[in-house]
Computed example of a mutant assay.
Amino acid sequence: MPARVAALYHPTVGVHDLDAARDWFRRVFNRAPLRWEETLDLAALNPDYPVNYSFFAFICDVHWVFLCPSLHAQGALKGQTRYQDKPEGMIGLGWYTDDAVGMFARLAEHGIRSHDQRGERITSQKPPTSSFLPDVFTGFTEPEDTGIRYEFQQTGQRHWAKYSEKADLRLRSDWRGPVLEADDPLGLLLTSHHTIVTADLPRAARLYTEILEGEPIATSVDPVTGAQSTYIRLADTLLEFLTPVADTALWARVAQGEDYYLGLTYLVNDTQAVGAHLDSVGVQYDTGRDGEVIIPPAAGFGVQWRFVQSLPYPAQA
């Protein structure tokens, strides 16, 4: 069988100050950020692998990674430049695959270049590996070919039990989807969708529908801005590819060819309660149509965090 995307792996947020990001995350989501030792057995890791450049978080039904670019290129990752000079915000999106070798071969067949954690090109003679564990196979696409940097990872089964304790609850055999947590001040029900701004919709559609075999859901046009949204579902995730109108600020972000991973939208019980909580913790937000609450990138470490009370299109059954 051809390699497939099994599920979302994680979005990666680039932050300049991990301590400040941890504090913000605790205040906004009322969840404890996770250290590497809480997600994997450090004794099994490459001893030269730097484990101080990121922290992890599980929010509702999404496993997140917060990464500091200035701490990343150390030890086994020394010399890496892929995150160098990146502004704060979304710097990548990862997917679980059941066959990393087959996945990168499939991407290469369609002219998409990829590299491993050390920045070395993945080829048929040099399959993907990871710098931290021998039975984790991971690689990244080149943004020039795919708009943003996408990661595909195959994780050895022996790590699932530890990783599913706190880092990614979806790997548990009894996972049946998110539930409303009693101590969740935001009232998160589930993830609605991820938003990626693009001026090259055919490139995004080719990757997600032709190569990865995602399902086109619908298109819509914003009556105020004129921006077009194209929704594509892949595995357990809904993606919105937003094509802005020319000569707007969003268009300027993508006019040179690279896509802009803007952020993520959560479905909540009560957007007024979300606003009240953000007021209580001193986080700036805007209110949009239908009462939606939006933490703008300037107030959310470069990420747009949206909270809505209705889905743009029905969730997958």
Rank of each mutant, 00 (worst) to 15 (best):
A20G: 04
R22I: 08
F25T: 15
F25R: 01
F29K: 00
L34K: 02
E38N: 04
E38Y: 08
T39N: 14
L40E: 03
L40N: 03
A43N: 13
N46V: 11
F56L: 09
V62S: 01
A73D: 10
Q84S: 15
L93I: 03
F104S: 00
R106S: 09
L133E: 07
V136A: 09
V136H: 06
V136D: 06
T141K: 00
P143F: 01
Q157P: 12
K162F: 12
K162Q: 14
S164G: 14
K166W: 07
A167H: 03
R176T: 13
V179S: 07
L180Y: 05
L180A: 11
D183R: 00
D183G: 01
D184Q: 04
L188K: 02
L189D: 02
S192C: 04
T195H: 10
I196Y: 08
A199Y: 01
A205N: 07
R206E: 01
P216R: 12
I217W: 05
S220W: 05
S229K: 08
S229R: 11
L234Y: 14
T237E: 02
E240C: 14
A249R: 13
L250W: 07
L250G: 05
Q256A: 15
D259G: 03
L262Q: 13
L264C: 04
L267S: 01
V274I: 00
L278S: 04
E292V: 08
E292H: 12
A298G: 10
G300K: 00
F301Q: 05
V308K: 04
L311Q: 00
A315E: 06
